[in-house]
Design a protein around this nucleic acid. Structure first.
Length: 607
DNA sequence: CCCCCCCC
C-alpha cells in the first residue's frame, strides 16, 4: 500500500491558509497531562508529517484521545484530517505561534500496516517559506490508490459505474475498518434466507452472504432496506464487484469464516455482477478438521468437516420446545481417515431430500458442535454450507480411503448411540436416588434419563386449562365471558379453545419418589383418556376425580428431562416427562438380570 | 442493527 501525503499542506495551514481534508502521517505523539481546558483531562500532541514538513504543534481534540490509547493513531499511521481549526497561541520565549487542533480524522492505514516514514519531511522552522507554487489549488488531499487502472478512484470511495470494465480490485484479506476505499471481486459461496428479528433493541430483517477471493473470505450482512435491495440480485456461485460496505470486528462465536472482520451493507454499497472472466476466483474454501479432533473442541464451536456418510437414519418429526413448530431431522453418521465417526444432523428439506444409500462424501462448512449424553455431534445451521460429493481433492481422497479401508473398519464414535436399544449413553437408566447423587440437571443444558417408576398420585387441581386453539400455540386463554377467548401470545380473540393438560404427578421407584410434570400428550397416556373427554366431564366432580384416582399405581418406563430451576433463591429440580410407555416386564427383567450378573461378576466369569 | 438454528 502506498499513500500520497498532502505535501506542502502544513506550511499552508501554519500560514493561516486552508487545505481541505489533508492527508498526513503521524510520526509521534506526546501526552500532555491534564491540560484540556474543558475537561482537565490529558491531551495529546501529535507529530505530523505532510511528507515534506513535520509539525509538532498539532493537538488532538480530547474526544479523540481514545484513538491514541487504542493504538489507532500510532506512529506511521496515515490519516486524513477531515476537521481541524488553527489558532494563535502566545509562547513566552518563542513569540506567537499557530497551532492546529485536529477535530476529526479518518484513518486511512494503520501504522502497523504502513510501517515506515513516508518521504523525508523536515521540521518547519521559523521563517520557513510558504511555498506558493501549487497553492492556487490545494495539495492533493486524497491518497492515490495503488496502481489504479480505472477512473474509479477519484471520489472518496469507488463507484462501480461501469460493470464489466477492468476494475482495480483489492484482495479481501486487505480489508479493514481503517480503509474504506476498496473494491473487491468476490464469489458468493453461500447466501442465507432472509430472517426477521424483534428484540428489545428493535426489529428488522437481514440476510448474510459469504464471499471468497484468492486471498481469503469474509461474511457480509445486509439489513432492512439493503436486504430488500440486494437479496434477489445475489446468486450463490456468482462473482460480484463490491464496494462501500463498512467493516467491523467479526465475532468468532457465530462463524468460522477466516477473517477478523465482517462487512455490513450500507446505503452507499455497490454490488454488481462481474462479467469478466471469473475462473481465477475460487468457488468455496473449506478449513476441514479431522473428525477425531472434534472431541477436544467446545460445544457450540463451528467447524468445517468432510466425511463419508457411512449410514443414515430415517427422517424424524419432532415438535420444537421453543417454537412449538414441527421440525424434521435426519441423523447420519460421518466417518473419515482418523477412523472416527460422528453423528451429523440435517434439518428440514435437507433432511427430507437426503439420500445416503450410496454412502456419499459430505462436506460441511460452518457446522455446529452439539453435546448430548456425554457425546459430541454436529448439526447443520442456516449458515452452514452442505455439499454432497463435492468435486474437491479431499473428497476424492476420502472416497479412495473409504472404498479400500474405511468401509470395512469399525470407527470409534464420538456421538451417543441414540439408535441402540439399551445403549447406556442414550437410555441413561437411573433411579431417583441416583438422579440426586449424580446431580442431574445442574449443568447448563437439561439432562435426560430413563426410569421405571409407578404413579403414586396425580394432582387434579389446575390440571386442565383452556388453551389457544391454534396448532402452534398452546397458551392459556382468558375467558372473556362473552363467548370469546383471548390469547395474549397471539394477541387476538377466538370463539373457541382447546382443553390441554398440565399434570403434577408423584412418581415412586425402588429408591424414592419424585414430583414430575406431564404435558398434554404424556398426560393423556397417564390418565388413559383425552383432554377433551376430561374437559367434558369437568362439571361432574365425581367422574372427574375418578379419572385421577384410576391413574395411580400404574407402572411405566419414563423418559425424563431434569433441569435445576431457581425459585426465590431456592434450587429445585424440575423434572418433566418426555415419554411414558407402559412397562414391558420382559425387557425390564432382562435388564435387571444383566445388571445383577454384572454386579456379581457372573457375566464375566461365565465367558 | 443479527448471533435463533430446534430433538433426544
Amino acid at each position: 500500500m502506498s499513500f500520497k501525503l498532502s505535501e506542502g499542506a502544513l506550511s499552508v495551514i501554519l500560514a493561516g491558509g486552508n487545505v481541505d481534508d489533508p492527508v498526513m502521517q503521524i510520526l509521534g505523539h506526546k501526552k500532555i497531562a491534564g491540560t484540556s481546558s474543558t475537561t482537565g483531562s490529558d491531551r495529546f500532541r501529535l507529530l505530523v508529517s505532510d511528507g515534506r514538513h513535520l509539525n509538532s504543534f498539532a493537538m488532538l481534540a480530547t474526544q479523540l484521545n481514545d484513538k491514541v490509547t487504542s493504538g489507532e493513531l500510532s506512529d506511521f499511521t496515515v490519516i486524513q484530517i477531515t476537521r481541524y481549526i488553527t489558532s494563535m497561541v502566545t509562547n513566552s520565549d518563542k513569540g506567537d505561534k499557530r497551532v492546529m487542533v485536529i477535530l476529526d480524522v479518518k484513518i486511512l492505514a494503520l501504522g502497523t500496516e504502513v510501517g515506515f516514514k513516508i518521504g523525508n519531511p523536515k521540521p518547519i522552522t521559523e521563517g520557513t517559506e510558504v511555498e506558493t507554487g501549487g497553492l492556487k489549488q490545494p495539495p492533493p488531499s486524497r491518497p492515490v490508490q495503488p496502481r489504479s487502472s480505472t477512473n474509479l478512484v477519484n471520489s472518496s470511495a469507488p463507484v462501480l459505474s461501469s460493470p464489466g470494465s477492468s476494475v482495480n480490485t483489492h484482495p479481501i484479506s486487505s480489508l479493514s475498518p481503517y480503509q474504506n476505499k476498496w473494491v473487491i471481486k468476490a464469489r458468493v459461496t453461500s447466501k442465507s434466507p432472509v430472517r426477521t428479528w424483534a428484540n428489545a433493541r428493535g426489529e428488522g430483517k437481514l440476510f448474510s452472504i459469504d464471499l471468497v477471493d484468492e486471498s481469503g473470505e469474509i461474511r457480509a450482512t445486509a439489513f432492512k432496506e439493503q436486504c430488500d435491495k440486494f437479496y434477489d440480485m445475489i446468486e450463490v456461485n456468482k462473482v460480484y464487484l463490491i464496494s462501500r460496505c463498512t467493516l467491523k470486528t467479526a465475532n468468532k462465536k457465530f462463524t468460522n469464516i477466516k477473517n477478523d472482520y465482517e462487512m455490513t451493507f450500507t446505503n452507499d454499497t455497490q454490488m454488481i455482477p462481474c462479467h469478466e472472466d471469473t475462473t481465477d476466483i475460487p468457488s468455496l474454501t473449506y478449513n476441514f478438521i479431522p473428525i477425531n479432533t472434534l472431541a477436544g473442541l467446545e460445544t457450540n464451536a463451528l467447524v468445517d468437516l468432510i466425511g463419508v456418510c457411512k449410514s443414515s437414519g430415517e427422517v424424524q418429526s419432532l415438535i420444537s420446545r421453543n417454537t412449538n413448530r414441527e421440525l424434521k431431522k435426519r441423523d447420519v453418521t460421518l466417518v473419515d481417515e482418523s477412523n472416527t465417526s460422528v453423528s451429523l444432523t440435517l434439518w428440514g428439506n435437507q433432511a427430507e431430500e437426503f439420500d445416503g444409500s450410496l454412502q456419499p462424501v459430505l462436506a460441511i462448512k460452518n457446522g455446529r458442535i452439539n453435546e448430548f449424553g456425554g457425546g459430541k455431534s454436529v448439526s447443520l445451521m442456516q449458515s452452514s454450507v452442505f455439499q454432497i460429493n463435492p468435486d474437491i481433492t479431499e473428497a476424492h481422497k476420502l472416497r479412495g480411503w473409504f472404498d479400500n479401508v474405511g468401509s470395512t473398519q469399525e470407527q470409534e464414535s464420538l456421538s451417543s448411540r441414540t439408535g441402540m436399544a439399551g445403549g447406556a449413553l442414550s437410555s441413561n437408566w437411573m433411579t431417583f436416588k441416583e438422579v440426586q447423587e449424580n446431580q442431574l440437571g445442574c449443568g447448563e443444558k437439561p439432562d435426560y434419563f430413563t426410569s421405571v417408576a409407578t404413579v403414586l398420585l396425580v394432582r387434579s387441581e389446575n390440571s386442565l386449562y383452556k388453551a389457544c386453539p391454534t396448532a402452534e400455540c398452546n397458551k392459556k386463554v382468558i375467558d372473556q365471558n362473552n363467548g370469546m377467548y383471548r390469547c395474549e401470545k397471539c394477541n387476538r380473540e377466538y370463539p373457541n379453545f382447546k382443553y390441554r393438560l398440565l399434570l403434577s404427578v408423584s412418581l415412586g421407584d425402588l429408591s424414592g419418589n419424585q414430583w414430575v410434570t406431564c404435558f398434554q400428550e404424556v398426560a393423556e397416556v397417564v390418565l388413559g383418556t383425552t383432554s377433551q373427554e376430561i374437559g367434558d366431564m369437568f362439571h361432574d366432580d365425581k367422574q372427574f376425580r375418578e379419572v385421577f384416582y384410576k391413574a395411580a399405581f400404574k407402572t411405566y418406563t419414563f423418559r425424563l428431562r431434569a433441569k435445576m430451576e431457581n425459585y426465590n433463591d431456592e434450587n429445585r429440580l424440575k423434572v418433566t416427562v418426555v415419554d411414558a410407555k407402559p412397562l414391558n416386564v420382559q425387557e425390564y427383567n432382562a435388564r435387571l438380570i444383566t445388571e445383577i450378573k454384572e454386579m456379581a461378576g457372573v457375566g464375566n466369569s461365565a465367558k
